[in-house]
Computed example of a mutant assay.
Amino acid sequence: MNTDSGSAPPDTGTDFLYPFIDANETDAEALLADLRNSAQSKAAESVALRQASLQESAPLIETAAAEMARRFAAGGRLFCFGNGGSSTDASTLAELFARPPSGRPLPAWSLTADEAVLTALGNDVGFELVFARQLIARARPGDIVIAMSTSGNSADLVAGLTEAHRRGLCTIGFAGYDGGAFADHPDVDICLVVRSQSVHRIQESQALLGYQLWASVQAHEALQ
């Protein structure tokens, strides 16, 4: 690959992810090799991180699953929420609990699913309160919330977790990097941290942790 710095464009901050995009590559075979190596490297990195995250989080997942199963058995419900890509991950997790491929369906909702509610609250009370205000209206003691984030720092997620904790809900946070504001927060009962600097890898690992959490809840004796 041609890496002549004199003809390279300014660093866009993504060169470490896709080093071949801005390269002056004229050899098709070399370009294909670069693409293949990049894909293989990212796949290997993702597998290693998922395995490490699952191993590190295993005790916390079991603790969370036991409490969630206890609450579900007593009539509790699950509310999931997040921003951006994490909102889709939260919706997927809620769907997994509510409409599982096997096992017992459990009451679970995504707080980003209703765009009318979300935009009304964002417009009327401010985006920072879009989740907290929904929980004020819908949540009750004995319920559960899961907030999904790559940074663990989003103000609206922290506000939602704080409101949930104040109302007697079990609060679970998913975060990346070092856990951000979720880590050691008094209103976050359990924080599952994926220790990576890559948003892509964090979300891939969080998907696995979410699935394992669901599987552990389903396997728990409280639901049998």
Rank of each mutant, 00 (worst) to 15 (best):
D11A: 10
F79G: 01
D187W: 00
D11G: 09
R50H: 12
T171E: 05
V130H: 02
G6D: 07
T3W: 14
A48N: 09
A116K: 13
G84Q: 07
G76L: 02
P107Q: 04
Q40W: 06
Q212D: 10
H165V: 13
L118R: 05
G176I: 01
R201Y: 02
A137Y: 15
L157R: 02
A30P: 02
P101A: 15
G126Y: 07
D22T: 15
S110E: 03
C191I: 07
P10D: 13
S53A: 12
V199G: 02
F79H: 09
R140H: 11
R195W: 03
E29D: 15
D189N: 12
Q224E: 13
S196Q: 07
D184S: 14
E128Q: 04
A58C: 10
D187L: 01
F81P: 03
D89E: 15
L121Q: 00
Q40R: 10
G160E: 02
A52E: 08
P105C: 08
A139C: 06
F72W: 07
W109K: 09
L54R: 08
Q206L: 13
D34Q: 07
W214F: 08
E45M: 13
Q134D: 00
E115G: 08
I21C: 12
L192D: 02
S38D: 09
A48S: 09
A155D: 12
A66S: 08
S154R: 04
C170K: 03
V193S: 00
A28Q: 14
P186L: 14
G84D: 05
S205W: 00
A120I: 06
G103Q: 15
H200G: 05
S87P: 02
D15G: 07
D189H: 14
E67A: 06
H220M: 09
Q40T: 14
R140V: 04
G85R: 03
D27L: 08
P105S: 07
Q134T: 01
N37V: 12
A28V: 12
N37T: 06
M68R: 09
A28P: 09
G82P: 03
N2Q: 04
V158D: 00
G85D: 06
R133H: 08
S154E: 08
V47R: 08
D27R: 11
V145H: 01
P186A: 10
E67F: 01
A215V: 05
L31T: 14
C170Y: 08
V188D: 00
N153W: 05
S205M: 02
L213H: 00
R166V: 02
A90I: 04
I61R: 06
N83P: 03
G84N: 06
I61C: 06
A120G: 12
T119Q: 03
L157F: 08
